[in-house]
């Protein structure tokens, strides 16, 4: 047990106090990198702790400030920015891979889901066209769906 904890004083890690929250921000956009996002995030909320990572950001701070920052950065690419709560603050030695070696606990789960978020992005885009969304929801599910020429052309244009 650490000295601070043994003494019953404040937590030993920065940004861990009650009322603070930490969140992951994942960006999967061809038009926005994690570095761009970090710069813009600093401009929007200087009081929030922001850590740039390979997948996006880890942000921590007062709940109202973090929520405001999330609402603002979502606007940069609403369909391709994904946000999730995090239990530990950024750089916590119990989770940070710099201290543990190997991948951070939880990395493989995020890696797995990041392969699927492109389909969720398509779903979010389709929400703006309710007729298409309704039509597809009613359509029976097929096991193998070939890549359509329209989708191939959209992928080429995006890259």
């Amino acid at each position: 047990m650490s000295e601070a904890a043994a003494a019953g004083s404040a937590p030993t890690h920065a940004g861990v106090g009650p009322g603070t929250v930490a969140k992951y921000v994942f960006v999967d956009s061809p038009e926005l990198t994690a570095a761009d996002l970090a710069l813009r995030a600093y401009e929007i909320a200087p009081a929030v702790q922001i850590k740039e990572t390979c997948f996006g950001l880890v942000i921590a701070g007062a709940e109202a400030e973090v929520d405001r920052l999330v609402a603002e950065i979502r606007k940069f690419d609403p369909d391709r920015i994904f946000v999730k709560d995090r239990g530990f603050p950024p750089g916590d030695e119990r989770r940070c891979r710099a201290n543990l070696g190997g991948a951070r606990p939880g990395f493989y789960g995020h890696e797995n889901e990041m392969r699927l978020v492109r389909y969720v992005s398509s779903g979010l885009r389709a929400l703006r066209d309710p007729k298409k969304a309704d039509l597809l929801r009613a359509k029976p599910k097929r096991e193998e769906e070939p890549l359509s020429p329209e989708r191939l052309s959209a992928i080429i244009e995006e890259s």
Binding site: L116, G123, L127, L136, R151
Partner: peptide, 17 residues
């Protein structure tokens, strides 16, 4: 189920919404 194509993604998001 998790989506594994664009159409499944549209169904997935529409169902959750």
């Amino acid at each position: 189920d998790y989506p594994h194509s664009d159409e499944e993604g549209i169904r997935f998001v529409a169902a959750i919404k």
